[in-house]
């Protein structure tokens, strides 16, 4: 069991190294980002403790992936298997529990830990024969796969929106829309194989235009219910809603161009830093978007031309 966790640690270290970071720096960065995110959430969002707890549990659900659970079952005896599942679930929710305790949310912290342990005992496996329906089937793959992998987050955003309407809190409603827009953006973080770009009978420009058009169309479709609810219940905030949507679409554009600017390599550290800085300082996008576009055309040319 110790060797299993040592291996997981080595795998995580490799992820950091591939990202261009020394593992120690990587862990440090994770702690800083998580602390910053937690502070922001508890400071700005009503019922943050619930959102925070559900987020922790939704990450655990990813560890219950059938292939992964099956592999563990196959290679460890029953006792070790239960210990591994319990320990890794507890380790994943530990930062969330610490955050909840610091904010004096004792009951929710206890609830999250209990739910995490229960989830490890129940060995919930996702039913592979059940296909989650999606409205994005016409143009696979980013939204199709992203929607199915992250539907609990969409449900969570819907819950937050409902709370915003019930308690007449426009900021909370805008937060739910921001979550959906960020989620759409995250669908383009996954780098496909060269083959799945090569198959397109398009020039690099046509290819990028195709990808961007689909992304914009589907982002609008996914955020539409949220926008409609916000416009109905918080009509006075129409300007903010439009601004948020506009920013979401511009970041979507930058993310797609950024992804193909370094294709077929995955997102790397300098690119990640540039993108992160642009979130704090949006005018940087005026330089980033043309830069990413020029690079993307250059990177795609050998594959598509």
């Amino acid at each position: 069991m110790r060797s299993y966790f040592a291996l997981q640690c080595r795998l995580l270290n490799r992820q950091f190294i591939d990202f261009g970071l020394h593992p120690i720096l990587g862990y440090l960065l994770l702690v800083i980002l998580f602390t910053g995110f937690s502070a922001y959430l508890f400071y700005n969002v009503l019922y943050a403790a619930y959102v925070y707890g559900l987020l922790g549990l939704s990450i655990i659900s990813l560890l219950s992936e059938s292939g992964r659970v099956g592999f563990l079952k196959q290679h460890f005896n029953k006792n070790e298997f239960q210990k591994i599942r319990g320990l890794e679930n507890s380790l994943v929710v530990l930062p969330f529990i610490i955050g909840l305790v610091i904010n004096h949310q004792w009951l929710i912290a206890f609830g999250v830990l209990a739910a995490a342990l229960l989830m490890s005992l129940s060995n919930v496996e996702r039913n592979l024969n059940f296909t989650i329906p999606t409205p994005f089937y016409r143009y696979p793959f980013e939204f199709v796969t992203g929607f199915r992998k992250n539907y609990p987050v969409i449900l969570l955003a819907g819950f937050v929106l409902t709370m915003a309407v019930v308690y007449d809190n426009a900021n909370l409603g805008l937060f739910s829309l921001a979550v959906v827009l960020l989620l759409c953006l995250s669908y383009y973080m996954q780098t496909e194989t060269s083959y799945l770009v090569w198959i397109y009978a398009m020039t690099p420009f046509q290819f990028l235009l195709h990808k961007i058009t689909i992304a914009m169309m589907y982002t609008a479709l996914m955020s539409l219910p949220f926008i409609l609810v916000l416009l109905i219940f918080f009509t006075g905030h129409a300007g903010f809603i439009a601004l948020l949507l506009g920013l979401g679409l511009i970041y979507q554009l930058a993310t797609i161009l950024g992804k193909y600017a370094f294709f077929p390599a995955s997102i790397n550290l300098p690119q990640g830093i540039l993108m992160a800085v642009s979130f704090w300082f949006p005018p940087l996008l005026l330089i980033l978007i043309p830069y990413f576009y020029t690079r993307a055309i250059r990177q795609l040319k050998p594959i598509l031309a």
Binding site: T131, I132, Y137, P140, R148, K149, L196, I199
Partner: peptide, 19 residues
């Protein structure tokens, strides 16, 4: 190579869209 969470029909659609 197949992404997880993409159905057989969606894979066919993806390759048809590409051409």
């Amino acid at each position: 190579y197949f992404f997880s969470k993409i159905t057989g029909k969606e894979y066919l659609q993806l390759l048809c869209n590409a051409r």
